[in-house]
């Protein structure tokens, strides 16, 4: 019988990533025993235990250098076979998005991706997820014995439950270099790398109205820095060359889910909203009081961005310091 929840945890330098803590915290409220799995990394059982995991399974070996689909799918399938969870959770991160669908096809488990909420309905874990670029919310249920879910970062709060240290159990998944059909030959830091937009807790985005690369670099980036936020952009700003592709928020850019999203000189086109509408608090700064973005904002300032942003930057610097 499948039971309990297994959380696929990503780590960074031996520490559980924030997305992993979010998932463990949520799993602890869904009922059933919670265990964690870390692939290709070390882990501190105390930190996992504090967030509700009883056991952490780890899989390591020569084949677990950089992330690869082949090694990770085989490893996670082996841990699932050993633990028999009813539910497996992972982040809708670059790794989770690559891993979970293929895993579902391998083990015959339903995979629900890009989830923003989970609940226990009559003993079954049920997911809510935005579809049609967030214009609609759907409820998804899995019919297979094991259900796989990837959850967007920042969907759940981190809540240490104060449990004792989790026991750490190494699993040999029988993965060898011969399993790897892809090789990472180089890793580059992309230009102006900061926190990934999709995982960012605060974002400041600029639109076409920043007018130039200089405008973006002298108004949006410093404002973001003062707020410890990640800079983003509308497609119009990206297409005009003011910000790189990797900064685009929206339907054909990144889908973000921050606590605070500040839209600077962005009109609020449906395709931009598609990428940021689940943000908890939205602030917009626009000189046009009729701009559609105001209808989706928690707070709005009707004024010129070139006067508001520097003043706001100084205020953030004073308050956040």
């Amino acid at each position: 019988m499948s039971s309990g929840i297994l959380v696929f945890c990503e780590t960074d330098g031996g520490k559980l990533k924030k997305t992993a803590l979010e998932l463990l915290s949520k799993a602890a409220t869904l009922g059933g025993e919670v265990s964690a799995v870390v692939i290709g990394g070390s882990v501190d059982g105390a930190e996992a235990g504090r967030h509700g995991a009883a056991t952490v399974y780890t899989v390591n070996g020569d084949a677990f250098g950089a992330y690869s689909t082949d090694a990770w799918v085989k490893a996670l399938a082996a841990v699932i076979a050993k633990v028999s969870p009813a539910v497996v959770l992972g982040a809708a991160s670059p790794i989770g998005k690559d891993l979970f669908p293929r895993l579902g096809a391998r083990i015959g488990a339903g995979a629900v991706t890009e989830v923003t909420d989970l609940s226990n309905v009559g003993g079954q874990v049920v997911a809510r997820r935005p579809v049609y670029a967030g214009k609609v919310i759907a409820t998804a249920k899995v019919k297979s014995a094991v259900g796989l879910f990837t959850v967007r970062p920042n969907s759940f709060a981190v809540n240490p439950t104060g449990g004792g240290a989790a026991s750490v159990v190494a699993v040999d998944a029988g993965v060898s270099a011969a399993d790897l059909k892809t090789q990472v030959v180089e890793v580059r830091k992309s230009a102006q790398a900061t926190v990934d937009l999709t995982e960012a807790d605060r974002i400041v985005s600029g639109g076409r109205s920043v007018k130039s690369v200089e405008g973006y670099d002298s108004v949006i980036r410093p404002l973001a820095a003062a707020l410890r936020a990640t800079p983003g952009a509308s497609r119009a700003a990206v297409d005009a060359g003011y910000a790189p592709h990797s900064h685009q928020v929206g339907q054909t850019g990144k889908v973000v889910n921050p606590t605070l999203y500040i839209a600077v000189g962005i009109s609020g086109a449906i395709q931009h909203l598609a990428g940021m509408r689940t943000s908890k608090v939205i602030v917009s700064i626009n000189k046009d009081p009729e701009a559609p973005i105001f209808q989706h904002s928690s707070y709005g300032i009707v004024d010129d961005l070139f006067t508001i942003c520097p003043a706001l930057q100084r205020e953030f610097e004073a308050v956040i310091g």
């Binding site: 670059p94 892809t182 090789q183 890793v187 580059r188 990934d196 995982e199 990797s246």
Partner: peptide
């Protein structure tokens, strides 16, 4: 490919 966290991976297959 974009590997997240501001990293670009070059993958061979």
């Amino acid at each position: 490919r974009n590997a997240g966290g501001g990293f670009i991976e070059v993958v061979s297959t």
